[in-house]
Amino acid sequence: MRRHILTYLLFAVVTFVTWSQDTTAVSTGRHITPVRPSTNVVKQPGRDVSPELIEQYISGDTLAAERKAREDSIRRSYPRYPMMTSLWLGVNFIDPILMAMGQDYASVDVHATLNMWNRVQPTVEVGMGWGKTTPEGMNFTYRAKPSPYVKLGANYNFLFKSTPDHQAFVGLRAGFSTFKYDVDAHYSNSYWQEQTDFTLRGEGSHAWWGEVVAGLKVKIARQWSLGWTARWHHLFSCKDSEHSQAWYIPGYGPRGRALAFTVSAYYTLPLSLDRWPRKDSNYSAIR
C-alpha cells in the first residue's frame, strides 16, 4: 500500500515538472506577429514608367533601376528636339541703312545656322564690306573697295527648353577678310613751303579676328524671324604695308573699334519635323 502511494507521488512530481518547463518556453521565445491587412498595399508603377524599369525592380537590381529612373525623370523634364532641328537662313541688313544715315562704312552678309537639338548652333556668315571717308580738317580721302569676308562659329541657345521660335544665345566667331583700298592725300610743309598731292592706289591687306556674340531671335510670322546680335571683337592680325595701315576691315569695322551691332532677318526651315516633341506630351517640369 505504501509502495503504491510513493509511486503515485513520484509520477505526479515528474508530470508537474515537465508541464511547468513547457509553459516557460512559450512565454519567453516564441512570438507570432499578427497579420494586418491594411499594410499590405501593392504600389502601382508611376506614370510613363517603362516596362524595362519595372523588370529591373522586379529582378532586384535596385541601383540600376534607380539610375534609370533618374535618367527617365530628367528626360521627361523638358522637350528634347532632334539633332537636326531646323536651318535658318539670314541676312544682316542694318549697315546699309546706317550708311544712308551718315555712317562711313557698311557691310552686308548672309548667314546659315544649323539648329542642333535646339541647343548648339554652328553658323557661317559670308558678306561684303565697303567704305569711304574724308574726315573734316584732314588731308585725305580713304576709299575701301567692296571686299569679302567670312566668319565661322557657333551659338549656344539658353532657351533650349522652349520652342525654337525664340532664341537667346551667346556664341563665338572667327573672321577673315582680304581687302583693298585707295588713299588720295594732299601734303604740305610750312618750313619748306612744299605742297604736293599723292595717291596710294590698290593697297592690299588681310586680317583675321575673333568675336564673342550675344543676341536674340524672335519669330515674327510663320517662318520669318528678326534678331539682333551684339559683337565684341578682337583683331588678331592685320597686315600693314610700307605705305599704309588699313582703316576699315570688312566684317570687322573700323580698326580699333571693339564693339559692333547687327540686325538680321531670318527664314527658318524646320528639319525632322516628325521627331519634334508633340505639344500634348506630358512633361512634368516644363515652365
Binding site: 574726315p135 588713299v183 592725300a185 601734303y187 599723292f198 596710294l200 595701315q245 582703316w247 580698326r255
Partner: peptide, 14 residues
Amino acid sequence: PIEYFASVECGAMY
C-alpha cells in the same frame, strides 16, 4: 621719302 597713310586720326604724310 615714303608716302604714307597712318590712320584716320593722324592722316597722310611722308
